[in-house]
């Protein structure tokens, strides 16, 4: 082909034809249509789903699930931060304690941890400091208390590794610059290192939190009234098993979506000063 001085800006442009996309969308729509049809004619009593969606017991259970997850995550992140700092301490006693804690609470299955805390009274009938303050373990270790302790310690161990990797990702030059303007370690952590590490750890911590929201269903084994357990309690009586499971699923999706919005907002805020990562494809 010989070279001609054409200008493509002056020429008609052929529309790209995305046959693949159209075909894909068609197949997807057919599948979706079939699914909707299946659920519509299936033996599902949608009226019951609607009736129980805002049932007081379900709403209370949603609240309890959120409460347990938020409080455990908050305590967990605080424990995790200190553990992460402890892991990199120059003091060998502190770094060993931190490593041991992570090993123990990350290694033991959470279901067993829940049962152990709840049944603590079997080996320690009384807890406290002898002579100063003592109490019956059975009274203290309510389902809520046992679940909070178990999930907080479990999350502390998991998040400590996430937070540690966040701290390691901050450039050593930042520590030196902070020191060179006379900052103490604590001040440098609060003002310089922490905020930069936070930006890195928000996505994995959000993931961890969403995992915890759903894992909190396990607390039903010790009689804590969270969402999944409450849905089960209701269907044991009214026998609407699938309907109640759908109600619970819908609520989990709603709560996770709400927190994902929060994560999006937080990430935008913390991205100030950093160049955004681009999209591809």
């Amino acid at each position: 082909m010989s070279i001609v001085a054409i200008d493509i800006a002056q020429m008609k442009r052929a529309k790209p034809r995305h046959y693949g996309r159209w075909l894909g969308a068609l197949v997807l729509l057919l599948c979706l249509g079939y699914l909707v049809y299946a659920f519509a004619v299936g033996k599902i009593d949608w009226g019951t789903v609607g009736n129980y969606l805002f049932h007081p017991r379900i709403l209370w259970a949603v609240g309890m699930t959120i409460f347990l997850s938020v409080v455990s995550m908050t305590i967990g992140v605080i424990i995790g931060t200190f553990t992460a700092l402890g892991r990199s301490s120059r003091n060998p006693v502190i770094s060993s304690i931190a490593a041991f804690y992570t090993w123990l609470f990350r290694g033991a299955p959470i279901l067993l941890q829940l049962l152990i805390w709840y049944n603590l009274a079997l080996i320690f009938p009384v807890i406290g400091i002898p002579g100063i303050w003592e109490a019956d373990t059975v009274r203290i270790m309510s389902p809520l208390a046992a679940a909070l302790i178990a999930f907080s310690l479990h999350e502390g161990a998991y998040t400590s590794e996430v937070i540690r990797s966040g701290l390691l990702s901050v450039d050593a030059g930042q520590h030196e610059a902070a020191k060179s303007i006379g900052m103490s370690y604590g001040l440098a952590f609060r003002r310089i290192i922490g905020p930069q590490a936070l930006r890195i750890v928000i996505p994995p911590l959000s993931n961890e939190f969403i995992g915890l929201l759903k894992m909190s269903a396990l607390a039903s084994v010790i009689g804590f009234l969270e969402l999944t357990g409450t849905a089960q309690d209701i269907y044991y009586v009214n026998t609407k098993i699938m309907e109640m499971l759908f109600v619970a699923t819908a609520w989990y999706l709603v709560v996770v979506s709400m927190f994902s919005l929060g994560q999006f907002w937080l990430e935008r805020r913390l991205a100030r000063g950093f160049v955004y990562g681009g999209k591809h494809g």
Partner: peptide
Amino acid sequence: MVFQRFNLFPH
């Protein structure tokens, strides 16, 4: 101290 690689606080 002024560093070779500036080390400004990026945030």
